[in-house]
Structure formats: C-alpha cells, structure tokens
Design a protein around this nucleic acid. Sequence first.
DNA 1: GGGTGTGCAGACAGGTCTGTCTGTTTTTAT
DNA 2: ATAAAAACAGACAGACCTGTCTGCACACCC
Lengths: 185, 185
Amino acid sequence: MKNMREKILDVATLLFDARGINASGVDTIIAESGIAKATLYKYFPSKNQLIIAYLREKSDRFYAWLNQKLQSRKANPKEILYELCGLVEQWITTPEFHGLPFHIASVEFPDPAHPINSYSVELSNELQHYLMRIARLAGARDPDTLGQQLAIIFEGAALIERLSPGSGAASRAKKAALTLIEASL
Amino acid sequence: MKNMREKILDVATLLFDARGINASGVDTIIAESGIAKATLYKYFPSKNQLIIAYLREKSDRFYAWLNQKLQSRKANPKEILYELCGLVEQWITTPEFHGLPFHIASVEFPDPAHPINSYSVELSNELQHYLMRIARLAGARDPDTLGQQLAIIFEGAALIERLSPGSGAASRAKKAALTLIEASL
DNA sequence: GGGTGTGCAGACAGGTCTGTCTGTTTTTAT
DNA sequence: ATAAAAACAGACAGACCTGTCTGCACACCC
C-alpha cells in the first residue's frame, strides 16, 4: 500500500469531525483504520502532527472547493462577493459539516502556547484575510472591516447551525451578510 | 464554613475559563481551593454537575448584568436594542472574558447525547430567544430573524476576539449589528 | 534464496483522569 | 463538655491516554 498516510488521515478526519479531537484516541484511530500503531507513528511522529495535518487538509479542501465554485462563474468581483454568501450557506448546511475545524481545535487546545492553538489562530486569520481580499476586489469602502464582519457572521452561523441544526441560522446569516455587503459598497 | 459550595464553584470557574473544562481536573480544583476531595464530591456528586452549575451561574450572571445595565437606562425599546450592542461589545472586550461558556462546553462535549451538550444547546437557545424578545419589543419587522442574526454576530465576535484579541472584532461586530438593526426597523 | 523494507499484533511504561474509601482532625451545637 | 457533623489528607481502584518497543509475517529485488 502506498497510500497509508492518506488512509490514516481519512479515518482520523472522520473521527475528529464526529467525536472531537481529544475524544478520538490513537488506539481508536488505528482500530478503525486497521493499521498498526507503529505505522501511524511512522507517518505522523506524534498525534499533534496528525492533528496539524488534519487541520491543514480541511482548510485546503475548503478553499479549493470555494475557489473552484467561484471561478467557474467568471463573474465580476461584486458578483463574486454575493456568490460567496450562497456558497458558505451551502457549505454550512451540508450534512458532512461539523463546525469549523480550527475553531474546534482552538477550544480543545486553549493554551496559547500550544502549537495547535497557534496553528488554529493562523487558520482563522487566513480565513479573515481571504474574505478581506475578496471584499477589496469587490470595491468595498472598508474591505478589512467587511471581510472581518463576514468572517464573524460565517463562524457564528457555523457555530449556531451546529448547536441547533435546522434553526435557519445559515440562511439568516446569508441574509445578514448580504445586508452588510450592500451597506458597504 | 457555610460557603464551601460557593468557594468550589468560584475556583472551578476560574480554572474552566482559563484552561478549559476538560483540562481542569478535579485534583487541580481541590488543590487550588484548598478543600478535600470528599468535600467537593459532597456538594457536587460528579464533575458533570459541577460543570452544569458553572454554566448556569455564568449565564445567570450575564443576564443579570445585562438587564441591570439596560433597565437603568429606562430607554424606549429601540434605544434598548442599540444600547445592547454597545454592552455586548463591552462584555466581549472585558479582559475577564474567555469566550461564551456554553459554546466552549458544546465543543468540549460534542456528543449530542451527553447532558452537558444538551444543556449547552439549551443555553444557546436561551440567548437567541432573549435577543428575539428584545427585537420584538423594538418593533423589528422580523424579530426572530434579527434576534438570531444578532446571536450569530455576537457569538462569532466572541470567538474571533478570543482567537485574535485586539483585532477589532468586537467593535466591528457592533457596527455590523447596528447596520442589521437599522435595516430591520 | 538471502537480505531488506514494510506492516501487523500487542505488551508495556508512565502519565492522567474520575470517583470511592479510610482514617484523623477540626468545627459546631447543645 | 460532649456528641455529632463536617472537613481534611491521601491512598486506591479502574479506566484511559500517548508513545515505545519487541517479535513475527509477508513481499520484493537482486
């Protein structure tokens, strides 16, 4: 097998998403993926590095999906901003969605000195800057403010949608985002 | 001592806020508060019940503080809505603020069948309904939507302010909330 | 066919956690 | 002053965690 690393990461992703990171022990991961413990520790020298890889891949996949959807529209920058809101709503209400991973990680590892917490902060900033960039391209009056406001709304909606699924948080968040965008252009 | 329960809860609150719930063991709580383990288990038959008490008290204190501040203004309902945004910003940027407790608890106990998760959902709904009620009193066109949108913004801001303190999330969230309120009246 | 790399199975060490239990000491009430 | 209640100190059980290590099986390549 060449794709051992991939298999481990896939199983870990499923478990981390469904049960949380700390609640998913290494023993569970190896049992679930049918590999030996030594193999896991060969590809990921520590559980922390496995978690980092999980966070990195989750993030990469999200941006890849978003960029692909946005670019296929070939719309002008303003339309991209509008389109974005719909895509985020879609992302959040997907049944496979379990909350923003870096957000969950930052709560499970609250010590700012812990590498996973630092990395979560990094990923959170990444999302904010991504949204600020789009806001800038769209010609928002204060793109940094609008970008961070969108990040706030998306993360809040992800949280509430996870706590009370089906309460309409995602669609109301989309509406709120559109209101802010219109007020900012 | 009559206030053993109170002392335990105070120490637990400090630890839960600063280091997280799962990271604060019973042994740490008793060492930090100088009581015996049996005493803790007398007042709180399990750690879960201590956590529940912590969540309940945090919530109570928040609403008490908010109501007191809001009522002292004796303003009309619309002004209360505006005032609320400033108070929440103030609350979030207080140095003692460590994130919304029920939100943190729901991440640390992600299993929906776990009593702490259920209770977190309850407290999250409580906040949403509190905000919906104020929106209704203020005469919002769609108070349930506005209330939930405010909850989304406040929780998102709390999260980002905790992840990147000093990034201006709280004040931008306040601005966003005011924009939504004006658009909804 | 022998050597090398890869993976499996599982024991083990050393730490942490919650919760119980046994004594001893201190406080409180009558 | 004496009896009862409460708190202390800390050992202990039983479970879980990460990470290491040993021994064995299989495959591949020269």
